[in-house]
Design a protein around this nucleic acid. Sequence first.
RNA 1: GCCCGGGUGGCGGAAUGGUAGACGCAGCGGACUUAAAAUCCGUUGUUCGCAAGGACGUGCGGGUUCGAGUCCCGCCCUGGGCACCA
Length: 886
Amino acid sequence: MLSRYEPAEFEAKWQERWKEIDLFKTREDLDRPKFYGLDFFPYPSGAGLSVGHCRNYIPTDVLCRMKYMQGFNVLHPMGFDAFGLPAENEAIKRKRHPAEMIEEYGENYRRQMDLIGIGYDWSRSFYSSEPSYYKWTQWIFTKLYERGLAYQKFAAVNWDPVDKTVLADEEVIGGRAERSGALVEKKLIPQWFFKITDYAQQLLDDLDTIDWPEGIKNQQRNWIGRSEGVQFKMSVVSAPASASDDLVVKSKPLEFEVFTTRIDTIFGMTFCVLAPEHPLMDKILAGVSPADAAAVRAYVEQSKGLSEINRMSADREKTGVFTGAYAVNPANGQNVPIYVADYVLMGYGTGAIMAVPAHDERDFEFAEKFGIPIVPVISPALDIVAEDIELPFAAKDGFLVNSGEYTGQSVSIAQNSLGEWVEACEIGARKVNFRLRDWLISRQRYWGCPIPIIYDKDGNQEAVAEDALPVFLPNVEYYEPGQDGSSPLAGIPEFLNVTTSDGTLGRRETDTMGGFACSSWYFLRFCDPHNHDAAFDPEKVKYWMPVDCYVGGAEHAVMHLLYARFWTKVLYDLGLVSVREPFARLQNQGQVLANTPYRKPREGETLDVSEDGILCSFEEAATLPQEDLTWKWARMSKSKGNVVTPDEAVSLYGADALRLYELFVTTFEADIQWSNDGMQGMVRFLSRIFKIVSQIQEGFVSDWWYQMDSLDASAITKNSKDVRRWTHQTLKKVEADINGFSFNTAVSALMIYSNNLGDVLKDEGWKEDRALTLALSEAAEYLTIMLSPMAPHSSDELWEGLGREGFCYNAEWPAFNADLCEEDSITIAVQVNGKLRDTIEVSAQASREEMEELAKSTEKIKGYLEGVMIRKVIIVPGKLVNIVVG
RNA sequence: GCCCGGGUGGCGGAAUGGUAGACGCAGCGGACUUAAAAUCCGUUGUUCGCAAGGACGUGCGGGUUCGAGUCCCGCCCUGGGCACCA
């Protein structure tokens, strides 16, 4: 057998053999527990996989392989998220049809995944753009539609002028489109939404039931943004006290509602603000002077024209206009002016607020600018007088002042008592509001799942019946998006024209669904991927769900992961799935960064504020003097020219070295600063293992477990005991570390173990020691098995070298023997006053008295104890003795 | 501004409140070699000392404890998310 790691000799061979016997085919034996391990659904880009992507797939593979060997039925599938903007944009650029292009890219992904030895069950694979899949995406859409969870409304939406489509709120970062980087515009068009807000509370509550990184859960909590407050009515006074008398007194006063989380500050309300889009605007303006009304209308017009980024930026100076109307503060009966200002958003709460400038920074800023009175009503402490309160004071630990009968109450008490008061006088009620908005699903693009809705001649909607699904995406040559926000499908008569259920002429909805719809249920389809009669068999989903371990990047924290949770909850309510949460455990891997050259700008070139150099190629960098270059760690991407492919890494060092390097170099969540050199260390490690196993093979006893039983107790040597102890300690650690996603320490444990075995083997005499030979035989076999999830090709090569049949994957993962893990003697620390002064060897069973006795008797410690009094001795069995003197 | 992470040798990183720096990379010294690569052995936190040994040391300042990288309080730096959400 080989005595060193020579990947070119065997990696392809084993991949071929695995494929021949369909090694990774999903097993569904009834008498075994299940394990569902899943990676995020990838979009197969033309650039292929980088070593960064492998960071996702390798750890999942390690865990799934171990689980299989431990007797689980393992579902470990892979498919491709094929619909969506990236694929379509790429296809337009390359003048290709996205369907065939994406399939080619997917095949390249698969080739690369096979190249690094990932054990996927490819028989379950699919593309989300296949009609046999998107038929059921559409079917789920109709289920949502029937429940009122998919609906259409006119909405001012995020319009991306570059990609010529609307975007979900989640896809807009700081006023720019996440994908194209374009400044997002507002556009008023009819759009399809999913009513995710109906599930806001459940989505929030159930976060407590899942094992996810706290950071991701927190991001979702923030995105859902629950806040408790009070919503109440404000009456518009027909005429301000000082107004002229030609205003007509209305019989029914105008009312609008406001939402506040600080009802305790109501006595400090000195004005109200309506959002520019507030529906009551016209009615209010009807009652004010023409001059005021004109000023307000001009302001409203102006704010419509502002881009999202201008309007939203918080550092922008407050703008607004007095409407000329007043409302009554219900707490004290005072009239307060009503302003319109764009810092109040129509999309949250009621689109109107009570403004308390003394206790809210935004209201404070506005009041200062417009000269509105600022009345403090909360004091940080009872002995601080109102004049001494530093404003704005927004903290919630304080007491009410200037607040009538509520004066003196603490903020929390007053929130309750004033809430009760609002409810008692029937002007409002306590209410919970969420920041979460409904999920905008319409896209005015070709390459997506068509929305299965038909309109009749009067514009009435109906969902396409199940037996008429799928609504096929037509295969056309030209599919570029329209300039005006219309979908390319609207220009295809064969698609557009259709017969409605009552036989009359109708037309189809021409928007397609955003890509996140497809990835909101693919994990269910993997449970039953070839079902022609249903999206999935609920029994199969019941068996496999939830996903036991879901692995992917943290960038999907509030998009995919929130949407998939939502769909799962809807399908649960429909009785189709048995779990409320799709992903029981989530792990986010770190990124892989490449050192990337940036050069100084040349004459005529300017830098953005955020840049400190201009990206250049590695070739160009090589020609420039060092002082003109800045090297930065950047995410690998085709456009930066810094991608390292697994193909490159495998050809240089082998697939197993690549796998081990990615597992070992840092913790799973941390970013890797890539260097090819690091893999050399893994080559050394694997070669050491080949050397050790091939050495042991010379004296390998294949039925070592049987021979061990018949070994006389007197034949058991210290070396053999040590080897067996290391073996079982390592088994215990490797298993726990893999389960805990601590792959770097699992590899490290194997390194320590193999270093120890190497030391024992240095003495040629091991073959004369029967017990040691048996212990080493066990070691060679178990080392091979433990290594196999991480370095499967090498392990199968070693396995064969030891004369074993088949594959490590089909071998049983050995359970460690706890008795064998026990140490006979241990080194413990001896401290004097908490400082380490000596170490002593004691038997593992040593009593506290024995430990103390021994600790006090060493020469070094005696020196420290001379002439001082022992005040106390702390003994931690197995760890240390601490003698406190004074 | 708000909400999460994270600061440990030259580097990546280990450490249920109990011997800080495991394991690896890089470096240094040596063996083997005509030589190099590969491999193997030794060494490597800082500092004082010939040595034995000592002092210091986990971003900074306090605290709790017999004992703190780990827990508490207050800062600094850094990565990420959200951002006029009332």
